[in-house]
Design a protein around this nucleic acid. Sequence first.
DNA 1: TACCAGGATGTTG
DNA 2: CAACATCATGGT
Length: 292
Amino acid sequence: MIEILTPKAFNFEQTLRFLSRNEKECLHTIKNNEIFKVISFENSLVLFSISFTKHLQISIHSENQGQKIIDFVKDYVSDWLDLKANLHFFYETAQNDEILASLCQKFYGLRMIGMPDLFESLVWSIIGQQINLNFAYSLKEKLVQNFGQKHFYNNEAFYALPTPERLAGLTLEDLQPLQFSRNKAQYILNVSREFAEGNLSQEVLKKLSFEEVKKELVKIKGVGNWTANYSMMKSLKNYDAFPVEDVGLHNAVKTQYGLMAKPTISELNKMAEKWKGWRGYATFYFWHSLLG
DNA sequence: TACCAGGATGTTG
DNA sequence: CAACATCATGGT
């Protein structure tokens, strides 16, 4: 058993609530308050699980339990659950906005559940463009089950995202029967090829400034402002990345502020000035409010 | 049936 | 830079 100490402001209950938001989610599984996930490490799959009693307990359910794997999984979990952020500064900023402050109180200790793998967040956000979330999960499930990596444990299948190389080798005709629109399929192929050919990598982007990273991402046809900001907040820990075009955010803001209509982009940009420095984190809290 | 859904691209003024 | 048209799939 591997233990990861958690900061004071850490709420495992809300973490589970977020990770359970859709039954079709196929890149992790939750059973009895334990989170299972398969990730790829040095060309092999590693299944691990996370439970919580006072602190996080990690179990690795693969043959290889070497120290390198343990360290890799610990880093992954710390990144995924965003254990290193200092929420104090976010909550301090939130005091500028009564509505956000009340969400912070309600969800105290909720951390921005991310996607440590940039490729995953790009694929997922492209899938989610312009369609409802439930259908998006359904598309992701088909993509993963058809082209992803399968790992068996106790006669149960766990899936990992297809590699960029696997998806880069596909054609539109492979994806359209799965109900991907032609544009959506093409956008996913575009991103996959950028990664597979080594034109785009998380390591290189980490060295660039906020604006430089966004510029690199938006170069890819199919990645616009929303997708770039989504991936930057979920994978690159840009806590101020702000997907202002997000319909879910619009709905949440309308509800939380009691507005008659959804805010326009420019209205929302103005409102979000109060969250500056933490606009991505604020967005995540508003999204969480949609779970009811 | 028209409109909406965790948008993006391209054209036009 | 803003406003619009177009894309294209499923749900209500």
